[in-house]
Each structure stands twice: as C-alpha cells, then as structure tokens.
Design a protein around this nucleic acid. Structure first.
Length: 653
DNA sequence: TCAATCCGTATC
DNA sequence: ATACGGATTGAC
C-alpha cells in the first residue's frame, strides 16, 4: 500500500530495499494506544530514507499489533533493548517537532500522578495535526534570538492574594518581567471572559506579536496554527484556558494560574488531571516560577505554602485600605426591608439601603444570584414550607421533571410524604432563579434598568451608570469604573450544598463578585446575605482568603481529605470495581470506603458503583502506581467492564 | 512422531 | 485486532 508509490522521502520506501539508518537506527516511540498494559515506549527501525525527518518529537505512523497507529518519536538511539525483531516505522508523518522533551517529561509525570496512560495525556497536550497549516513556512520572526540569561530567582513561586482592582494588568506586569529576561510565560485562566481580559493586558505589556491566546473552541486549523507558532519559538508568551498549560513555550520561565479554585480547571477527560496541579508539576520540572493568583486561595494553594514550595503573597494594610469595599453581612430572613416591594424580593434592609444609595449616586449595582440548576427545590404546595426528607431532614428534589421526589442527601424516596405543618401531601417546585430575581428587583427599584448576565447570555462588561445587573456566579460582568454595590444573594448555597468544598466555593464566588466593586472610599459596598458567624462569611468580611484556606486545609487534614491526603475514586460496574481492587497492592494505611451506588452510569446503562481509597500523602505515588498496575492487569486479560480512576476528584460523586 | 488445533499472551 | 509460542490432541 502506501510505500509502494514512494512519492516522497517521508513515505516508507520499497519494503524490499529499505535498510536501517546509518546513525541511530532505532526510534523509541510513544504509540497512541490507551491500553494501560501497553503504556511504555516501543522501538522501531528507522529506514535510511526516513532518517533525516525522524527527529525526536515528530509524529510517525507505526504498525502496532496489526494496526496502523499514530505515535511520537521520543528519542533516537543506537540499539534497542528489545529482544525480538523490530519493525520499520511505517512512515514519518512530518519532521515538525510537536512533542518537546520538556512536555514529554511532564506528560509522563502527569500520567503517573493520575494513574493514567501517556497516550491519554498526550492527547490533551498536543492538538491534532492540520497538514495545510503545517506547510505554511514559519514566519521567521524572533526565532531563537534569545541569548542565555541568568535564571530569575525561583522564589518566584507564589500563592498570591489579589485585591479588587485590575488583576489582568498586575499579572501582565509580572509576565512582562519574565519575557524581558528572555524566558517564556504560560498563563491559564478558567474561561473566555478572563481570557479576553488577560490576553489584552498581556498584549499591552509585552506586545501583541509576542503573545498568543489558546482556547479549546478555536477550530482545528487555527488551533494548530497557534500551537505551531509556540512550538516554533515565534512567541514567548501564551495565555489560554485549561489546555494551554501544555503549551510548548521555549525556555519556560513562569507559569501563572488565575483563580485556581474554578472548577473549569478539572479536566473532564482521562486521566482527569487538574490544571493547577499540572502547572505546579510543570514549574517544578522545568525549574520555572509559578504563581497561583486569585481573589480566593484554595486549600491546595495553602498546602503549597505550608510545605514551603511556594510563598504566600498578601497585600499590605495600605493597599487593603485603598482597594477594599465596605463589606457587611445580613443574615437571611432577619431584618427584611420595610419597603413592601423589597420585602417581596426578600431583600434585607441592609441590601436595600446599599442598592438605593448606589443607584442614587448613579452607580451600577451587581446582584449575584444562585446559578440555575441549584435552586430547584420542593415546597409544600399548600403552606410553602420547605419539603424535607423524613429520614434525614435533607432537602427534597426532583432530578428530572418526571422523576419521583427523593432526598438529595441520603437518596431516600419521598413517597408518602406529608407536610409536618399542614399535612398536605403535594409539592410545588420552587425556582428562585435569576429571572425572577430580576423581575422582583425591577419592581423594588422602579426606574433602574435591569440587565442580566446568566447562562448563555453572559455580558463581558457593562457601562457606568445607574442600573441593576443580575448575574450568576462566574458570569458577573465587569463594570466600567466599578460597581457602587454588590448584593450576594446566594448565601444559602453554603447551607444547601452537602459538598465538602461548599464553604471554599461560596467564598470564592463572593470574593470574585466583591472584587468588581469600587473601594469603600469611593462609596463601594458589599452586602452578603448569609449568617455572619460562618467562617467563609467571616473571611469575606475581613477579606482574608489566605486565612480561610489555611483553616480549610486544617479541616481537610482532620477529615483525611485532599490536599492533606490523596484520594482515589474508582467507578464502574460492581464486578469490575471489586476486581480492580483485588489487583491493587495498597499501602497498609490505606482506607477503603464503599463501594456505594454511584449516580454516574457506565456506558451501557449498567448500574455503577463507586469506591474511595485514601492514603496519606507520602503514599500517594504508591497508590497511583498500584491503581495503574491493576488496570494494566485487567486490560491485559481483557476483563469486562470499564473502570474510571480519578485521583483527588474535585467533587466526589 | 508429527501435524492440526487450541489457548493464552504480547503487541517493537 | 492479529500473530505467535507452547501445550494438547489425535492420527499414523
């Protein structure tokens, strides 16, 4: 087939006439094969005619187990350790170096850390080839003009608390210093709006020609075009969403992660690695700087500080005084505003006053409301009391429109439910969503325009001037000149979510919204509707995200949860889960929790079970290794049932 | 004793 | 998936 025509040198030559390359005739290849028991390099012979193109990091096609597969050349060597006969590379796809030694090493480290296969990680790290794009020659600008410089001080490892203000500019300034020293920068952000802001700030600070922005939705041609600009050394500074953490920037000097608590950083594809942890591993291996910056601080950030890998950087008193808005708490249900329309909107008087004052000063007001999907709860149809589980008093919910109501906490079905107050037996669904909040606020503050930024209508920015802006967490627009006030109405999210990260997550959302408000000296006010004695509320009132993260880390340690411990979640058909566990050699201290039924279904709608295994951090590597080895035994035996292995999952579900 | 067949294992 | 080696079987 292919080689017979022999059109170009890259094609396999006539098979009868090919001979091994004169120098380094063996290529060690990472074959694109996801099976865990085949997760190692395989050696192939390089034909003399392929030798010039077959450079480390290039793409090749190889015959593997009878099939033609893609692969990457890891290195060229003199001879193979393999005892048997070597096959020739089927062909060298192109001499373009797409897997640099730095990324190859990082990918192996990440695969090991998350009990995954190298091939899975390489699929995250390297975009698919686009031949037309590749043919276009390098633009040639700025390639390899750098000269070796002194390495910047690697204490540039920071967990950095940011005050309200212009965070993109602050990060761009830090990046510009590194670029000026001749080294490269990779910065990651959770979503497109943050990307747009940081990309603009970086273009301003280091020049548009020196930067490239990466996002998952670019389309294959543009994605590969930008990837090549980076791998060819044409740009020194990369900013992007999740996947950009893998950008092969030459001579990496700094990795920046903005708002590392955002759950968009959890990779949904195997091996389910977290962008923050990939960034930390990358900085560590490349001996580069690392900055985890945000208005919030995660427990993982606190752990890096505690271990002295990173240094905590917090603003000083005068910067706080200059930047922070005045922040107050209003407990839910107490002291509702006297104004009847405000009462209808369930606004505490503190919130109502702050809103009135800001609008009177012709300033916009941000109203943060619960995200759609969280607020579907059930009430008694007659007396409107919240419907609670008869077994555990948890909230009742319907997971789909026609499902029977059940408890969100313990799963007990709510069949035969009777309202303890009025004995009614029927429910009503309450949806206190952004839309209704917007309508009610419009009535409470007649004359102020109401805009909303939710779901698929997210606003990037709003103009200065009198208006109410209703937004769900993460969708808050930036206001020109800052908001006069912010009302944080999703305080119940703290109480309503059983998730162990609920406190950290609520605080993160509040800080991010509050960071869009003008300083107190310019009249900025924040009112959070939540009990003031709760720890996350305290952390918001005093703006002490680092303090909160350190307490959170203490709690996780007491509960044996990540990042203080390492936790594996194993999900799949019951027989497969128990089979995998049987093949694990767990450290003696490992705790095995479960299995319990998992809400996640396996591919074929079989019921799935979930098992948790946790070990102290010192045994983390052994846990990952044995899980991967057990998966390898199962795949070698073609054991039935797909098992999903996640390490330190963000949500346990 | 040797070929045909089966099964488990490796896949370069 | 497919190829291969070793074990097993059955005919001479």
């Amino acid at each position: 087939m292919s080689g017979a025509t022999g059109a170009t040198a890259r094609r396999a030559p006539d098979k009868s006439r090919r001979e091994p390359a004169a120098t380094l005739p063996v290529a060690r290849v990472a074959v694109d094969n996801p099976l865990p028991h085949l997760d190692r390099p395989f050696d192939y012979l390089v034909a003399e005619s392929q030798s010039a193109d077959c450079v480390p990091g290039c793409r090749v096609r190889v015959r593997f187990a009878g099939k033609l597969l893609d692969g990457f050349v890891l290195e060229r060597v003199e001879k193979s350790e393999h005892g048997g006969r070597l096959a020739y590379l089927e062909r060298v796809v192109s001499p373009e170096v797409v897997l640099t030694p730095e990324i190859a090493r990082l990918a192996r480290t990440v695969a090991d850390r998350w009990a995954g296969s190298l091939a899975d990680v390489l699929r995250l790290a390297i975009p698919p080839r686009h031949a037309t794009v590749e043919k276009r020659p390098a633009t040639g600008q700025d390639v390899a003009t750098k000269s070796p410089r002194a390495r910047p001080d690697k204490s540039l490892r920071q967990v950095r608390e940011m005050l309200p203000g212009n965070w993109p500019r602050e990060l761009a300034t830090l990046a510009a210093d590194v670029v000026a020293s001749g080294r490269g920068v990779v910065a990651v952000v959770p979503d497109h709006r943050d990307l747009a802001r940081l990309a603009q700030a970086l273009a301003d600070a280091v020049g548009a020609d020196a930067c490239v922005a990466l996002a998952a939705d670019l389309g294959p041609a543009e994605r590969y075009r930008r990837f090549l600009r980076i791998s060819r050394g044409e740009v020194r500074c990369v900013v992007g969403t999740r996947g950009a953490v893998w950008a092969p920037v030459d001579d990496l000097g700094l990795v920046v992660v903005w708002d590392d608590g955002d759950d968009l950083y959890a990779e949904p594809r195997a091996p389910y690695c977290h962008t923050r942890d990939v960034a930390v591993a990358r900085a560590h291996l490349a001996d580069a700087g690392c900055i985890l910056a945000g208005h919030a601080v995660t427990a993982e950030g606190a752990a890096l500080v505690e271990s002295r890998w990173a240094r905590a950087v917090a603003p000083d008193k005068s910067a706080r005084t200059r930047s922070l808005p005045a922040i107050r708490a209003a407990g839910d249900d107490v002291d509702l505003a006297r104004d009847p329309a405000a009462r209808a909107a369930r606004l505490p008087s503190l919130a109502w006053q702050a809103t009135r004052e800001a609008l009177a000063a012709d300033l916009p007001v941000l109203v943060q409301v619960p995200r759609l999907g969280y607020q579907v709860s059930l009430q008694c149809a007659q007396c409107r009391a919240a419907a609670r589980c008869a077994v555990c008093a948890g909230p009742l919910q319907r997971t789909t429109a026609d499902a029977a109501p059940a408890c969100r906490w313990c799963g007990a079905p709510a069949a035969g439910w009777k309202c303890p107050q009025c004995s009614s037996t029927s429910f009503r669904a309450v949806v206190v969503g952004a839309k209704r909040t917007a309508e009610e606020l419009g009535r409470a503050f007649p004359g102020a325009p109401v805009r909303s930024s939710v779901g698929d209508h997210v606003l990037g920015e709003v103009a200065a001037g009198r208006q109410l802006v209703v937004a769900t967490p993460g969708a808050e627009p930036v206001a020109d000149g800052g908001y006069g006030a912010a009302l944080l109405l999703d305080g119940w999210a703290l109480l309503g979510r059983d998730d162990l990260r609920a406190g950290e997550e609520a605080l993160r959302r509040w800080l991010n919204a509050a960071a869009l408000v003008r300083p107190a000296a310019a009249g900025g006010k924040v009112v959070v509707v939540a009990p003031g004695e709760l720890r996350p509320v305290q952390a918001l009132l005093r703006w002490r995200p680092g303090w909160h993260a350190a307490r959170e880390l203490e709690d996780r340690r007491a509960l044996h949860l990540p990042p203080a411990a390492r936790l594996a979640a194993v999900t799949g058909p019951p027989a497969a889960v128990s089979d995998l566990l049987a093949h694990c050699e767990l450290p003696g201290v490992a705790e095995v929790l479960g299995p319990v039924p998992s809400p996640r279904r396996s591919n074929h709608e079989e019921p799935a079970e979930r098992l948790l295994i946790r070990v102290p951090r010192r045994d983390a590597a052994q846990l990952a290794t044995t899980l991967h080895a057990a998966a390898a035994v199962r795949s070698a035996r073609k054991s039935p049932g797909a098992v999903r292995i996640e390490l330190d999952p963000v949500v346990i579900g």
